[in-house]
Simulated assay, not measured.
Amino acid sequence: MTYYTGMVAAVPTANKQAYIDHAKDAWPLFKKYGAVRTVETWGVDTPKGKVTDFQGAVQAKDDESIVFTWIEWPDRAAADKAWQTMESDPEMAAMGDMPFDGSRMIFGGFEPLMSVGQVDGADFYQGFLLAAPEKNKDAYEKMAHDAWGMFEKYGCLGMAENWGVDVPRGKQTDFYRATKAEDGEAVLFSWTAWPDRATCDEAAKKMEAEMEGVEMPEMPFDGKRMMWGSFETIFDSGKG
Rank of each mutant, 00 (worst) to 15 (best):
K135R: 12
E185W: 04
F128A: 02
D183Y: 12
N162W: 00
V187K: 00
G127K: 13
P133L: 04
E141H: 11
A198Q: 09
A144F: 09
F128H: 10
R169Y: 09
P168Q: 00
A178C: 14
N136K: 01
K137D: 04
G213L: 12
P112Q: 04
A139M: 03
M159K: 03
K206R: 15
L129V: 13
M105L: 12
A160W: 01
A147M: 11
R197F: 14
E141G: 12
L188M: 05
R197L: 15
W191I: 04
V167H: 00
R104T: 08
A204W: 15
E134K: 13
E208P: 11
K137T: 05
P168N: 00
M216N: 13
K153C: 09
D123S: 12
P112M: 02
A193Q: 02
Y154G: 07
R104F: 10
Y176I: 05
R104I: 03
K153N: 06
V167R: 03
P220V: 08
K137V: 02
E152V: 05
V187E: 08
G121M: 09
Q126Y: 14
I106S: 04
A198M: 07
E212F: 11
L188R: 01
N162L: 05
G127W: 02
D120Q: 13
T192P: 00
F175Q: 04
T192E: 05
A203N: 06
R177D: 13
W163T: 05
P112L: 01
D196N: 15
D183C: 06
A147Q: 03
P133T: 06
F151L: 11
S115L: 08
A209Y: 11
W163C: 01
Q118D: 12
E111G: 03
P217I: 02
V116I: 09
K137W: 02
Y125G: 02
G223P: 02
A131P: 08
V165G: 03
F128D: 10
G149R: 07
N136R: 02
P220E: 05
V187L: 10
W191P: 05
V165A: 01
L157G: 10
G213N: 06
P220W: 06
Y140I: 08
K142H: 08
T173N: 11
V116H: 05
G213M: 11
G149I: 03
A198H: 08
G164C: 10
G109W: 07
F124S: 14
G184T: 10
E208R: 15
G117S: 06
C200H: 14
K137P: 03
R169D: 12
E111V: 04
T192Y: 03
C200G: 13
F221S: 01
L130I: 06
G158N: 00
A181C: 11
T173K: 07
Y154V: 10
G108F: 00
V116T: 05
W194G: 01
E210N: 09
K206H: 15
G108R: 00
S115C: 07
M211I: 15
E212T: 13
D222K: 07
A122I: 07
A131N: 10
F151H: 07
M216A: 15
G117N: 11
E182M: 06
G164T: 07
Q172K: 14
D222C: 07
